[in-house]
């Protein structure tokens, strides 16, 4: 039980990495506040995790990270619900690739609104709530693409590189309040997002991974568990790759 009595908020908890992390954190005794855009999906995921983890403490809140109003409302509700926050996993993200000559302004806005602005909006409220307690841990999901870049992914890479800069800056600003801020840079993880590129590209990506396979959402969740728990009590400002030796 690495997260007993900790209150954790996870964005994009309905699928993929967010869902797997929600389940693992619940297994470790956290009160997990699942958040997402669809109330139906949230109800369904909460019911599934409750069945998989019989003693789980779960709540859910509607939260679209791309909307500052939605973030504000969710954190106000969180405050009423739990009065505290120990861990934020900013995981919600979208992928929308195109060659630079074909990228539309709307596409750029959509990707940055969720992947970058969403991380900032959530960190604002989360850090204030954490500062009112004993501190906490903010974990931002970046990407190997944000570290190394990739063709056809200038927008996504920019949105994720920004997350790394945000993480480093916040780690310095929030350390005096005992809030640690770290990022995870997954490589290629078998989720809806990875599958959305089509089977041919999926196989191409897997071929670029030294371990010869895509990662699982649970393998990212385990690193998030390390960063959320006191096992990483002196770790801040870091970006940890979870990529099986992927070359890009």
């Amino acid at each position: 039980m690495l997260l007993a009595n900790k209150v954790v908020l996870i964005t994009g908890a309905t699928r993929g990495i967010g869902r797997a992390t929600s389940r693992l954190f619940a297994q470790h005794g956290a009160h997990v506040v699942l958040t997402g855009r669809s109330q139906d999906q949230l109800n369904a995921v909460q019911a599934e995790i409750a069945e998989e983890v019989p003693d789980a403490r779960l709540s859910h809140l509607a939260l679209d990270v791309s909307s500052p109003e939605s973030v504000r409302d969710a954190f106000l509700q969180l405050f009423k619900l739990t009065r505290r926050l120990d861990v934020l996993l900013s995981n919600a993200g979208v992928l929308d690739d195109a060659l630079i000559g074909m990228v539309t302004p709307d596409q750029i806005r959509r990707v940055f609104d969720t992947n970058t602005y969403g991380v900032l909006f959530c960190a604002q409220y989360a850090s204030r709530l954490m500062a009112r307690g004993d501190g906490g841990s903010i974990i931002n999901i970046a990407s190997i693409i944000g570290v190394n870049g990739n063709l056809g992914q200038a927008v996504y890479a920019g949105s994720k590189a920004a997350v790394i800069g945000i993480t480093k800056s916040l780690s310095k600003e929030l350390a005096p309040a005992n809030i640690r801020v770290n990022a995870i840079a997954p490589g290629f993880i078998d989720t809806d997002m990875a599958r959305s590129i089509g089977p041919e590209k999926f196989a191409e990506r897997v071929a670029s991974i030294k371990m010869g396979r895509a990662g699982t959402p649970e393998e990212v969740a385990k690193v998030a568990l390390f960063l959320a728990s006191d096992l990483s009590s002196y770790v801040t400002g870091q970006t940890i790759g979870v990529d099986g030796g992927m070359l890009i």
Binding site: P68, R72, L76, Q124, Y125, R128, L129, A131, R132
Partner: peptide
Amino acid sequence: MALIAALENDFDIMLDT
């Protein structure tokens, strides 16, 4: 920011940015 935290704690509220 310290003032904001103190106001929030003492009045038991959470302020909008």
